[in-house]
Each structure stands twice: as structure tokens, then as C-alpha cells.
């Protein structure tokens, strides 16, 4: 893609291409001189309808088929009626908060419950204002991409650990992976 764009740019500089669809504004004063156009305008565009709308339609259709297929096969969980006298063991938060629960297992509450999530939340919101690097190319953004990848890896790993590898008393547990007769984590 980048090669294609640069070859267009070179061809245009050499005066071989003077106009390219409607994206390039041509006038008598421009067509007589070799054009140097902003890279933004060199990019090829297509009409949204149908090109983008068609892709959106197909993506939606695929998701609908997927959802229906899953929903016909797998039932949403429904356990015994709520009973505040009986605490299941382990008691787990919804899976997307299990990273947080995992942190609380490993660090003192103030660190795990306040400082870490606070830093992630505030950091996340402020990302565009903290990152002063104007380039969008991955090779210029090694630090940003590195830091974000650390966050992504830890978030995914902690959620998987909390979901799969935490058993009774939220202690480490291989049963869900290896199978353990007589043990059922869903009380």
C-alpha cells in the first residue's frame, strides 16, 4: 500500500499523472505545473454506499449467524435461587473484573484496589494527551506500543488466571484444566 502510494507520488512529480479522479482539485494554474499534493489527497477513495455499507452488512450478518449458532447450542447459566446464607466457594466477580480480584489476591488492598486500577483508568483516559509523539508508524512508537502491550498481556493473563486457575478459597487450582473428579467449582 505504501509502495503504491509512493509510486503514485513519484509518477505525479514526474508529471506523468496530472489528475486522479475527483480527489485532486485541478485548475488551469495547477495542471500546467507538476503537482505536489498533500498525501491525504493522494489516497484513493471509494463511495461509502455501497462499499462500506456492504462490508458492515456482511459483518453484521456474520455476527448474527455466530450469535444464533452459539445461543442455540449453549444455554446461559442459571444456578440455584439466590441464598445469602450459602456462600459459594470460590465466590467470583464477573470475568471482566477477575483481573481486579486477582490483583487483590496478590497485593495489599490499597495498591490493588485503588492505586493500580486508578492508574490504569486515569492513564487510559489521558492516553492521547500524554502521548506527544505525532507519528502513527509502529517503528516510531516503540515505547507506547511496548507499554500498552504490557497492559494487554497482563489484563488478559489475569482474567484467564482468575477464570480458569482459581478454585476454592480463590487459591491456585488445576482442576478446571486437568479435570478433577468430585470437585465442582460452580457451587
Amino acid at each position: 500500500m505504501a509502495q503504491e502510494a509512493s509510486s503514485v507520488r513519484n509518477a505525479r512529480r514526474a508529471g506523468m499523472i496530472t489528475t486522479r479522479g475527483h480527489t485532486v482539485r485541478t485548475g488551469p494554474e495547477l495542471s500546467s505545473t507538476p503537482m505536489v499534493v498533500r498525501s491525504r489527497e493522494e489516497e484513493e477513495t471509494v463511495v461509502t454506499f455501497p462499499h462500506l455499507v456492504w462490508k458492515e452488512f456482511l459483518a453484521g450478518l456474520a455476527m448474527m449467524v455466530f450469535l444464533l449458532a452459539v445461543s442455540v447450542q449453549i444455554n446461559a447459566p442459571l444456578l440455584q435461587p439466590a441464598n445469602t446464607a450459602v456462600t459459594p466457594n470460590p465466590a467470583k466477580a464477573p470475568w471482566y473484573f477477575l483481573g481486579l480480584q486477582e490483583l487483590l489476591e496478590r497485593f495489599p488492598p490499597v495498591m490493588a484496589g485503588v492505586i493500580f486500577p486508578g492508574m490504569v483508568l486515569v492513564g487510559m483516559v489521558l492516553v492521547p494527551y500524554l502521548d506527544r509523539n505525532p507519528s502513527r508508524r509502529p517503528e516510531d512508537r516503540k515505547l507506547a506500543i511496548g507499554l500498552f502491550t504490557v497492559y494487554v498481556t497482563m489484563a488478559v493473563a489475569f482474567v484467564i488466571i482468575g477464570t480458569v486457575f482459581r478454585g476454592p478459597n480463590f487459591s491456585w487450582y488445576w482442576g478446571q484444566v486437568l479435570g478433577h473428579p468430585g470437585l465442582n467449582s460452580k457451587v
Partner: peptide
Amino acid sequence: LSFTGYLLPWDQLAVWAITVGTNLGKYGP
């Protein structure tokens, strides 16, 4: 949205997940 919907079935999974989940938030100063 997901968290609030989690409670609605009012089964053991719902009530205890919300109990644990809201306990996570109580450490804030």
C-alpha cells in the same frame, strides 16, 4: 451495563458475583 445485568437473574451466580464485585470497589479512600 454487563455488571448491572449480571444481578438480574437473582440466582447464586448473580448475587455472589455482585457481592464480590462491589466489594472490590470498597477499597477506595
